[in-house]
């Protein structure tokens, strides 16, 4: 059971990283990046590093998403 969850989290990291590079809509790409950060934080928790997991969830999924959103306000929303 634990192996199934672990493998699913690893697969979700790769899938969301692929979608972050694949989306033309930059807002969708940023949200995909936030999902990747959340999954990485879950992976750190599974690997028994709760310190790093809290830091990743706070910085990666919370703050960097907000900063990307602020930056997206000042540029075109879709990629060429």
């Amino acid at each position: 059971m634990a192996d199934v969850v672990h493998t699913a989290v690893l697969v979700l990291i790769v899938v969301s990283a692929f979608f972050a590079a694949w989306f033309r809509d930059l807002l969708a790409a940023v949200i995909s990046l936030a999902i990747m950060s959340l999954m990485i934080s879950l992976e750190f928790y599974i690997l028994q590093a709760p310190d790093v997991a809290i830091a990743e969830a706070g910085i990666g999924a919370g703050l960097s998403t907000a900063i990307y959103m602020i930056a997206l306000r000042a540029c075109k929303r879709t990629r060429r």
Partner: peptide, 21 residues
């Protein structure tokens, strides 16, 4: 417990981002 100054500070700073949004 797990965590510390850096992690808790990041969680509190998310509060400002939440207010901004």
């Amino acid at each position: 417990s797990p965590g510390g100054g850096f992690q808790g500070g990041a969680v509190v700073a998310t509060f400002i981002a939440f207010l901004l949004v």
